[in-house]
Design a protein around this nucleic acid. Sequence first.
DNA 1: GCGATGACAACGC
DNA 2: CGCGTTGCCATCG
Length: 119
Amino acid sequence: MPRVPSKPITAAEAYPLIFAVIKRIPRGKVASYAQVAYAAGFPGRARMVGRALADAGGGGPKLPWHRVINAQGRIALPRSSEAYVEQKTRLVAEGVLFEGDRISFTRYGWKRGSAPVLD
DNA sequence: GCGATGACAACGC
DNA sequence: CGCGTTGCCATCG
């Protein structure tokens, strides 16, 4: 598909869509920032998803923010942070196992072991 | 208006 | 696997 010049989007408009996508990531599965962005209708804007979560800071009780990881299968937070530990704990609690500090998209990727990015 | 800053990603080496 | 580079784009100072 041709690259469409996308117009700027504000947080107020994008966040609800992004959160809506994150809410449908099944338990025990994970999705990359890029995948979430793509599914929310913002291809190529993975950073915005990261910003959305950072702003949300916990994002509400119903938001499974811990199921969003980077394209390398790693938690996108400093190893030393509290949030890192919490995210890992939550994932392990729902059956997502780590290989070192990485998670296998092949096994736990949203939508049948999908690729990190595309739908 | 400009440069710096990110819970990012793809690609090259 | 690790690094550096480039592309990305809303925010912030």
